[in-house]
Amino acid sequence: MPNACGLSRGDRNRNKRLDRLRALVPATNAVLGIDLADRKQAAALTDHDSRVLARRRAVCRAWELGPVLDWAVEQARAAGFLSVTVACEATGHRWQVLERLAAERGLNMVCVQSLLVWRAREGEDLTWDKSDPKDAMLIARLTTQLRCYEPEISDGTWSRLRQLGARTAPVAHRVHRVWPAAA
Results as ranks from 00 to 15, higher is better:
Pro2Met: 07
Gly6Asn: 09
Leu7Gly: 00
Gly10Arg: 13
Arg12Met: 13
Arg12Tyr: 03
Arg12Asp: 00
Asn13Met: 12
Arg14Gln: 14
Lys16Pro: 00
Arg17Met: 14
Arg17Ala: 14
Leu18Gly: 02
Leu21Cys: 12
Leu21Asn: 04
Leu24Arg: 02
Val25Gln: 02
Val25Thr: 04
Thr28His: 05
Thr28Tyr: 00
Ala30His: 01
Ala30Ser: 07
Gly33Leu: 05
Ile34Tyr: 08
Ile34Gln: 06
Ile34Ala: 06
Arg39Tyr: 06
Gln41Ser: 05
Ala42Leu: 04
Ala43Pro: 01
Ser50Pro: 00
Ser50Ala: 15
Arg51Trp: 04
Val52Ser: 07
Arg56Pro: 01
Arg57Asn: 10
Arg57Thr: 15
Val59Thr: 14
Val59Arg: 09
Cys60Pro: 00
Cys60Gln: 10
Arg61Lys: 15
Leu65Lys: 03
Asp70Trp: 04
Asp70His: 10
Asp70Ser: 12
Trp71Ile: 07
Ala76Ser: 05
Arg77Pro: 01
Ala79Ile: 07
Phe81Lys: 02
Leu82His: 04
Ser83Ile: 03
Ser83Thr: 06
Val84Cys: 05
Val86Phe: 06
Cys88Thr: 15
Gly92Ile: 07
His93Asp: 08
His93Tyr: 11
His93Gln: 11
Arg94Tyr: 15
Val97Ala: 06
Leu98Asp: 03
Leu98Trp: 13
Glu99Arg: 12
Arg100Asn: 07
Leu101Lys: 02
Glu104Arg: 08
Gly106Val: 15
Gly106Ala: 09
Leu107Gly: 01
Asn108Arg: 01
Met109Val: 10
Val110Ala: 07
Val110Lys: 03
Val110Asp: 04
Cys111Ile: 05
Trp118Asn: 11
Trp118Tyr: 09
Arg119Pro: 00
Arg119Lys: 12
Glu122Arg: 15
Gly123Thr: 00
Gly123Pro: 07
Gly123Phe: 08
Glu124Ala: 10
Asp125Tyr: 04
Asp125Ser: 11
Thr127Phe: 12
Thr127Cys: 10
Thr127Val: 04
Trp128Leu: 14
Asp129His: 12
Asp132Ala: 10
Asp132Cys: 06
Lys134Gln: 11
Asp135Pro: 03
Leu138Tyr: 10
Ile139Ser: 02
Ala140Trp: 01
Arg141Pro: 01
Thr143Pro: 01
Thr144Leu: 02
Leu146Lys: 03
Arg147Cys: 04
Arg147Gly: 01
Cys148Thr: 05
Tyr149Ala: 10
Tyr149Met: 11
Glu150Trp: 00
Glu150Gly: 03
Asp155His: 10
Trp158Tyr: 06
Ser159Ile: 14
Arg160Phe: 08
Leu161Phe: 13
Leu164Gln: 14
Ala166Gly: 15
Arg167Lys: 14
Arg167Val: 05
Thr168Met: 10
Thr168Glu: 11
Ala169Met: 14
Pro170Asn: 09
Val171Cys: 04
Ala172Val: 15
Arg174Ser: 13
Arg174Lys: 12
Arg177Met: 12
Ala181Met: 09
Ala181Leu: 13
Ala181Cys: 08
Ala182Asn: 09
Ala183Leu: 11
